[in-house]
């Protein structure tokens, strides 16, 4: 998969779910959204080798 985390390229193996990806990145599910091929995806969505994945942190302080 092609993975971007907050605009930065990262490497990760495919075949995992969005929730597992967030956990592997040590992020909180409560603070970010995973987009698969441009669309927000549910936690259980499996990520394939050809998928383009963006993880966006949306919860900040202030």
């Amino acid at each position: 998969m092609a993975l971007m985390v907050n605009g930065k390229k990262r490497k990760m193996t495919s075949g995992i779910t969005c929730a597992q990806l967030v956990k592997k990145l040590s992020l909180s599910r409560e603070e970010c959204i995973v987009k698969v091929n441009g669309k927000p995806a549910a936690d259980g969505r499996k990520i394939g080798a050809k998928d383009k994945v963006d993880v966006i942190t949306i919860v900040f302080g202030g």
Binding site: E30, E31, C32, I33, P40, I56, I58, V59, F60, G62
Partner: peptide, 20 residues
């Protein structure tokens, strides 16, 4: 809060995700 962010994305409301 996460659902508000998602709603903004889905509705095309422009937002800047940044920390104070």
């Amino acid at each position: 809060e996460r659902e508000i962010g998602l709603y903004a994305i889905l509705k095309g409301i422009p937002i800047k995700f940044q920390e104070c």
